[in-house]
Design a protein around this nucleic acid. Structure first.
Length: 600
RNA sequence: GCCAGAGUGGCUUAGUGGUAAAGCAAUCGCAUCGUAAGCGAUAGACCGUGGGUUCGAAUCCCACCUCUGGCUCCA
């Protein structure tokens, strides 16, 4: 890739802005950066764009490029800063802690345009880039001349809305996305790759492989797991619990309902008021469906007196939690109302916290390495933002927690990147971010320190000196939610799960009806070894059955005909590798059991 | 919630104002097969819902529902 692709992408966003301004002169402009693989720009348009309009805009952009225009750079920081601060209205608070403004800038060369911008400090460094007749504020980098852009290396892809909150009325900017690469081939390659990735989408594979489904009567955002989906879910759960038991976790089980009081004390009721399902009955009950299970676990801890000798106490539970997500946010398996969370909590002393966190990180590393996902991630040290009212607990505790997490990151070489404003209600956390098939990031495992919750619930233990002290809670999720995790691995393996996770591990194919009896005897022996299997006894040709089973991504096929009966053996065909030839059944069983054990 | 797009048998899709098509899957029959699609037949859709325009609507208009993509930061 040529090294000026960044400049090209960046410049293209401005060229698009110019094209828009030419086509729709009343447009007030927003902003637009270069992004991975392309660029986008947000506009305040007076007109709604249809997808066909993209072609018009693209044509206009090409026209501008062909004029071989120069990007002229001129430092006008003072002027800009002055105008930005003196203009009236439009002040807005954008997103988390970033104030930004929509201001009118006059007296600049070319047309009068509006821009919105973020931090005042950054504005001072802003320079204007002029591409007649449009003036845009931008730090760059840009190409020198539009002639550096080849016409067939970019493509506008989609129109989207970008929510811009904070102004008197909420406004929606129109965002136009584009792709841009150094060469036409790279662009085409990316598009093809994207199409391939879409075929691996967990929703498509989930349906094809019959892992989960939805029902209009049950409702959107409420996935139903089929037998095959459950097989995977249970294997995952067994594996994660096996690992966690090694670290001292014990399973507990709590009801989905609770009195709202529990969440009022924990602070969840206040912070997640709008996302809490409330359940009532004609008999006067008033409950909430649990959106998290930490508070329940505190009550198991609180059920009897605890000594420092008991700590750390570690509970784990995989259960459904319910969150009333906003309607537009529900979809697929990744955003649902009912999520099955693989959750765990350690109650420990302050001295034990660091080791506990390291242990959790090790669990995560061990588990994700075993399925080949470790390395395909980055870690966020999610800390508190500026608005302290969104969190519970004391400042000194937060600072200490953050320090501990930083030390863990350093000592374990995790390279966690600090992300302010991403903390949980009760404490900072280490979030592990993975990428799905189409490159979108998803947060899955997490480790969180919490000094606040035990205090809220008056959890105590008796220390060596006979005094009562509050334990520290460490929250951790290895799989995060089963739904998200399942989505991630469906896409990661493109449905071809390793044997231990495959819902059907062996498909037995009798060549014709005469061989069914032998197939059943093989089935019995496999069942005795806890191998998940199916017999394809439908009246179809061998080729057809093999095709069906290959498409279902079953790892092993046993083909049974006269030859096998005579040799008292099985013919093994391995997924995507083809015929492995004949072998005695015992040998096959031994081999597959070994493979399952090694999680290969 | 907001911006945009899409809803046609179980699935994938064709059909732009004049009698709803095809493939896969299903069911039944024939075939009993040696490593990725055997042959034939049958059944299955008031075209998301409601309203409007029209002699006539899957198709045009309006509303609603559902699904898909997008919506912290990025200069």
């Amino acid at each position: 890739m040529e090294n000026n692709i960044e400049e090209i992408r960046h410049s293209l966003s401005h060229i698009m802005a110019q094209a828009i301004l030419n086509l729709y002169p009343k447009t007030k402009l927003g902003m637009g950066p270069a992004i991975e693989n392309g660029f986008y720009y947000d506009f305040l348009l007076t007109k709604t764009l249809a997808p066909e309009d993209l072609q018009k805009i693209e044509a206009k952009m090409k026209e501008i490029i062909l004029q071989n225009q120069k990007f002229t750079k001129k430092n006008i920081s003072k002027l800009v800063a002055k105008k930005l601060f003196s203009a009236k209205g439009g002040s807005a608070s954008g997103g988390k802690d970033q104030p930004f403004k929509l201001e009118l800038i006059k007296d600049l060369p070319g047309k009068t345009v509006s821009i919105y911008t973020t931090e005042p400090d950054k504005k001072l460094q802003a320079t204007s880039y002029k591409l007649q007749p449009f003036v845009d504020l931008c730090k760059g980098p840009h190409i020198k001349n539009t002639s550096e852009i080849k016409l067939d290396t970019f493509k506008l892809t989609k129109i989207a809305g970008a929510y811009w909150k904070g102004s008197e009325k909420n406004k929606m900017l129109t965002r136009i996305y584009g792709l841009a690469f150094s060469t036409k081939d790279e662009l085409q390659k990316y598009i093809t790759m994207q199409e391939e990735a879409e075929k691996r989408d967990h929703r498509i594979l989930g349906q094809k492989l019959d892992l989960f489904c939805f029902s209009d009567l049950v409702g959107g955002g409420l996935p139903l797991y089929t037998p095959k989906g459950v097989a995977i879910k249970e294997e995952l759960q067994k594996e994660v619990e096996r690992i966690c038991r090694g670290y001292g976790f014990q399973k507990v089980s709590c009801p989905s309902l609770t009195k709202i009081d529990l969440f009022e004390i924990s602070g969840h009721a206040k912070k997640f008021n709008d996302e809490l399902f409330r359940v009532s009955s004609p008999n006067g009950h008033s409950f909430a469906l649990k959106p998290v299970q930490c508070p329940h676990h505190t009550q198991i801890y609180a059920s009897k007196p605890r000594s420092y000798k008991d700590l750390p106490i570690k509970y784990m539970e995989s259960d459904k939690q319910y969150r009333a997500e906003k309607t537009g946010e529900v979809g697929g398996l990744t955003r649902v109302y009912a999520i099955t969370v693989e959750d765990g909590h350690t109650f420990c002393t302050r001295e034990q916290v660091k080791d506990e966190i390291k242990a959790m990180v090790n669990i995560i590393k061990e588990f994700y390495s075993s399925i080949g996902l470790w390395g395909n991630h980055w870690i966020s040290l999610s800390t508190r933002g500026k608005d302290f009212s969104k969190y519970i607990g004391e400042k000194k505790d937060w600072d200490l927690c953050e320090k501990i997490l930083k030390e863990v990151s350093d000592e374990m070489n995790l390279g966690a990147i600090k992300c302010p404003g991403e903390a949980a209600l009760y404490g900072p956390k280490l979030d592990f971010m993975f990428k799905d098939a189409i490159g979108k990031e998803v947060q899955i495992p997490t480790v969180q320190i919490d000094f606040a919750t035990p205090k809220k619930f008056n959890l105590v233990y008796t220390d060596k000196d006979g005094k009562e002290k509050n334990p520290v809670m460490v929250h951790r999720a290895i799989l995060g939610s089963y739904e998200r995790f399942l989505a991630l691995i469906i896409e990661h393996f493109a449905g071809a799960f390793p044997v231990w996770l495959s819902p059907v591990q062996v498909s037995i194919i009798p060549i014709s009806e005469k061989h069914l009896e032998y197939a059943n005897s093989i089935k019995q022996k496999l069942l005795e070894n806890n191998i998940r299997l199916e017999i394809r006894d439908e009246a179809e040709t061998l080729g057809k059955k093999i095709r069906t089973v290959e498409m279902q991504k079953v790892p092993y096929l046993l083909i049974l005909g006269d030859k096998e009966i005579q040799a008292e053996a099985v013919s093994v065909r391995q997924r995507s590798k083809g015929d492995l030839g004949q072998m005695p059944l015992d040998k096959f069983i031994q081999q597959i059991i070994e493979e399952i054990k090694n999680k290969k």
